[in-house]
């Protein structure tokens, strides 16, 4: 089951194991330049607000209500990363517009291994974008559905779903107990704890948002060393995260959206940190050829004569903090005040 707490999705499976829980939140962040260079990890600037779709059913198209889940606001061309937090192992699939962010394949509920279409928690602390090469992703950036920028539209030629989709599967209790027993043997002394109109959007004047590939960033998506058999696929929980622009968010919820994030250049000019992460000896998956073939927002805009993205100039990153698996705090919201 999933509950919503402090703008975080909390997945819990007490029927599998008392410790089987994980949290998933969506972090506001800087949009890195979409200039062909590989940037380090940008900071978190606080979580996106999330609300139950059910609470605003009368102000949303029927199709949105039918899919359930939660609602979040994003500015056009705003970036996000997904923050995973768990002590218990989970396999989590992430899609945008029902296109898998790891493989580029259409959404299916179950896990696949060849190629791996999920991330493994707690090894994977974050996911910032589409896995295009081994060790490189293209940043998740919000664009309106129907303008042909999103991964969904580039892959399918249609603008149906938008938003972001998740399913989380806990490790089987037996596999978990075995893993913990093995770990305690090793560490006995250590202390480890277009189609928019037909979908009914225009009726209510809503233009849904989708996610599109932005600039390149250094991030590894870790290979699953445990194998498919470790995951309890009888007990998964899914969530559809519908995205709306900030004006629509105010009209739907009556709440003010967060303020616009600073530009990456402004942030860098102030000498605030960017991040690198090294997951010990973990092996990374290869990137997806399908996702590598997607055009980034800047490339698309250039081709359609819409000009470059605003605030997309190249700059030198001044200060990179290296994080390891014992220090995972990547937020800098307080330092911007």
């Amino acid at each position: 089951m999933i509950i919503l707490e402090n703008n975080t999705l909390k997945f819990r499976f007490p029927e599998v194991h008392e410790k089987a829980s994980c949290s998933i939140a969506f972090q506001r962040t800087l949009r890195i330049p979409d200039d062909g260079r590989d940037y380090p990890l940008p900071p978190g600037l606080g979580t996106f607000p999330l609300r139950h779709v059910d609470d605003y059913a009368s102000r949303l198209p029927d199709a949105w209500h039918a899919r359930g889940g939660v609602l979040a606001p994003m500015y056009q061309a705003e970036a996000m990363w997904i923050n995973f937090s768990s002590d218990y192992p989970f396999a989590v699939k992430v899609a945008t517009g029902k296109i898998c962010a790891i493989t580029g394949d259409p959404w299916v509920d179950h896990l696949n291994r060849e190629p791996q279409d999920y991330v493994v928690l707690p090894d994977q602390p974050w996911l910032d974008g589409y896995c295009i090469e081994k060790g490189v992703i293209r940043q998740f950036v919000a664009m309106p559905l129907g303008m042909d920028y999103t991964a969904e539209e580039q892959m399918t030629g249609k603008a149906i779903h938008g938003g972001l989709q998740l399913v989380a599967y806990p490790m089987k209790a037996k596999s978990y107990e075995k893993m913990m027993a093995e770990r305690s043997m090793v560490f006995r002394s250590a202390s480890y704890s277009a189609a928019c109109a037909s979908a009914g959007y225009s009726v209510l004047g809503l233009t849904p948002m989708g996610l599109a590939p932005g600039g390149r960033m250094k991030q590894q998506i870790y290979d699953d060393p445990k194998g498919l058999d470790a995951w309890d696929q009888r007990h998964g929980s899914r969530c559809f995260v519908s995205l709306v622009n900030t004006v629509q968010w105010m009209a739907i919820t009556g709440e003010r959206p967060p303020t616009e994030p600073p530009t990456a250049r402004d942030y860098a000019t102030r000498g605030l940190p960017w991040f690198d992460y090294y997951g010990a000896d973990a092996k990374a998956v290869d990137g997806s050829e399908k996702l590598r073939g997607l055009k980034s927002i800047a490339k698309k805009a250039e081709q359609t004569g819409q000009g470059p993205l605003p605030e997309n100039e190249t700059f030198a990153v001044p200060h990179v903090v290296t994080l390891g698996d014992r220090r995972l705090v990547r937020e800098c919201a307080g330092e911007l005040r």
Binding site: M1, I2, I3, L4, L9, R12, P14, E15, E18, H52, V53, D54, H65, A66, R67, G68, G69, V70, K98, H161, Q165, S237, R238, C239, F240
Partner: peptide, 18 residues
């Protein structure tokens, strides 16, 4: 009550058709 019973009274994020 066991955790499972407590969690039955909390509000779930509903999953629908998609």
């Amino acid at each position: 009550a066991p955790d499972e019973a407590v969690l039955r009274v909390v509000r779930e994020v509903r999953d629908g058709e998609w």
